[in-house]
Design a protein around this nucleic acid. Sequence first.
DNA 1: TCCTCACCCATGATATTCCAAATTTACACA
DNA 2: TGTGTAAATTTGGAATATCATGGGTGAGGA
Lengths: 171, 171
Amino acid sequence: MFVSTYESAIDAKGRVSIPAPFRAALGGGTRIFLWPALDGSGCLEGGGEALMAMYRATLTRLAPQSEVRKALVTRIIAGSADLKMDETGRIKLPEDLCKAADLTDRIKFAGNIDSFQIWNPEKHAAFNSAMATAAADPETLAAFGRAYSEVLHQQGAGAYPAPKLVDGSEG
Amino acid sequence: MFVSTYESAIDAKGRVSIPAPFRAALGGGTRIFLWPALDGSGCLEGGGEALMAMYRATLTRLAPQSEVRKALVTRIIAGSADLKMDETGRIKLPEDLCKAADLTDRIKFAGNIDSFQIWNPEKHAAFNSAMATAAADPETLAAFGRAYSEVLHQQGAGAYPAPKLVDGSEG
DNA sequence: TCCTCACCCATGATATTCCAAATTTACACA
DNA sequence: TGTGTAAATTTGGAATATCATGGGTGAGGA
């Protein structure tokens, strides 16, 4: 799982070190896919072979020749760069993707569960504070609470040990 | 899998280099099939022997003499060029296909999972931005999210390890 | 005879690999 | 808690390999 946020620098050759924890999340694979985020947020999204295998399975499930599938295949499959890390864990960011996400010298890697994002630091800061506001919204918190309860319920009653309401011993 | 997009030039002899990653996706085969895309989008569609084998199996499943089968066989089987790469990974694009897809000097190879597309660069840019708009539509993103969840679910509960929120043994 | 095609080699540009230094982080010990 | 040592990671740069592309040659067909 891709967790946390890291900053990294683009060198003169356009190379970037993938943060070590993200390399671990890639499970030892050296192939990395990168594409502009679908929602137009201005960042890049990326992942390894496992993610792309999931996306392939997802896309081939959609009706062939449907507009939805064509759009997604074009953006995710045709629109992604197929990169390979070197032994020191670096990739070369393609020019067009740098331009698309406004990446110049420093970038932010942000974990996104199964994938990660690459941000221009200023854009990331703006995005971050917008998300902080959104997350504090009671509606958002309530939605999270409902989903969490569903997962708990789905996992069965054993997820939490039965509380001992009166218990003499504490240790 | 055919991923990403590459640009290539048609030389004076009508030859085109297949991008190296696509050659890898062809699995070492040197035979390439090309035909005008069925959906009338104006590009060519292509693949190797593996794809054609799949198409053969698919087409022979359809009822013989059915209009559907005749139409598809005519377009995909009869309508495709059967080309062979040279040792440097080039093919010669047939004149009629070039005319059909409006290919002149430069072309775009776009990955399409099991097949690839060949585009006139300007047409590709137009198609691409149309698809970007379509993909950013919340409806499309939602459809993708649903399909992704289904794939996750289909892979069983093991796709994510069940979290043990409270666990007696700790170390 | 001319043209096309398949096959060959050459070359510049690009990407990849390799090596090494600098920096950071982790760990052990005082 | 602070410090020294070791390991890992991030950088920078050079050597090497790969790739896209251009052109040449001869066989075979029109």
